[in-house]
């Protein structure tokens, strides 16, 4: 999320340092092709004729609504819960901090299905926390929109926390110390000094978490299930349609792609370039 390098500098270094070496150009081009070609073929293979019909169909609207709702709540949960966790990891020296930091990063490498299975053992009807909840309140988590949000937050939060923790560490503690000498309480310093300094990391982390939530499939379908209007997100609908009609699945993939690229572009214009 760094601002693009200034165009003048690029020209200067290019003309003074000679031609870029092939040993960098060739693999770079292969990497670019690998990333771009499948997206181009997806665009070409999309049956555009029925694009609007698909976009307006009830199951797609329901899935888009669930996806928009759950990814927004997931980002909110990351902001409200993840920011304090990142601050604790970056600023407070407590026993087991490095262990906790490692544990927080684990969902990054966990296959999403395993994340779903883990959530079932914790919050399923017979899970450690889930059974307690069921006995005391009669509530069960699986098969609800809440379960989708919990699954998304579980897989997305590490991206957010690591991003914000990195930003907090980079900003350093000096400004906190200065604020304290000027009489600010720690909470006041956090709000007025620490957080504004870490804002690029907060925005980058929120975008990463949102993107992760948007594409989440494995943990959702394992833990929350798949029912139109309550737990069926766009990726679940796409996977379901892939078994019946791959052409419809391609159209739905295109819708999700356009929505996500559109939102990212909007965010970039509003915050990322100005920061």
């Amino acid at each position: 999320m760094t601002p693009p390098p200034d165009a003048g500098a690029t020209t200067l270094s290019g003309s003074h340092l000679g031609r870029p070496p092939l040993v960098l150009v060739v693999p770079g081009a292969v990497a670019a092709a690998l990333l771009v070609v499948p997206l181009v073929t997806l665009v070409l293979d999309t049956p555009w004729g029925d694009f609007l019909d698909q976009l307006g169909s009830a199951p797609v609207l329901a899935a888009l609504r669930i996806t928009a709702l759950t990814s927004a709540v997931t980002v909110l949960a990351c902001l409200v819960l993840g920011t304090p966790l990142a601050w604790l990891l970056a600023r407070v020296d407590f026993a087991g901090r490095s262990v906790l930091r490692a544990a927080v990063a684990v969902p990054l490498v966990l296959p999403p299905v395993v994340a779903g299975v883990a959530l079932v053992t914790a919050l399923g009807r017979n899970g450690v926390v889930g059974s307690l909840l069921r006995e005391t309140t009669g509530l069960t988590v699986p098969f609800t929109t809440t379960a989708v949000v919990i699954a998304h937050t579980f897989v997305a939060m590490p991206f957010y926390v690591l991003s914000v923790e990195g930003a907090l560490r980079t900003a350093g503690e000096r400004y906190d110390v200065v604020a304290a000498t000027l009489g600010a309480t720690r909470w006041h310093a956090f709000r007025r000094v620490t957080l504004p300094l870490a804002m690029p990391g907060v925005v980058a982390g929120a975008v990463l978490a949102w993107a992760r939530s948007l594409g989440e499939f494995g943990a959702t379908i394992t833990f929350a299930g798949n029912f139109p209007g309550t737990t069926q997100t766009m990726p679940s609908l796409i996977y379901t349609q892939l078994q019946a009609d791959p052409a419809v699945a391609r159209t739905l993939s295109m819708i999700l792609l356009l929505v996500s690229v559109g939102v990212l572009a909007g965010l970039r214009n509003r915050w990322l370039t100005t920061s």
Binding site: V109, P111, V113, G218
Partner: peptide, 11 residues
């Protein structure tokens, strides 16, 4: 990148 890549092929 791994968790992202694993989304598609789990079921």
């Amino acid at each position: 990148v791994l968790p992202l890549a694993a989304c598609g092929d789990d079921a």
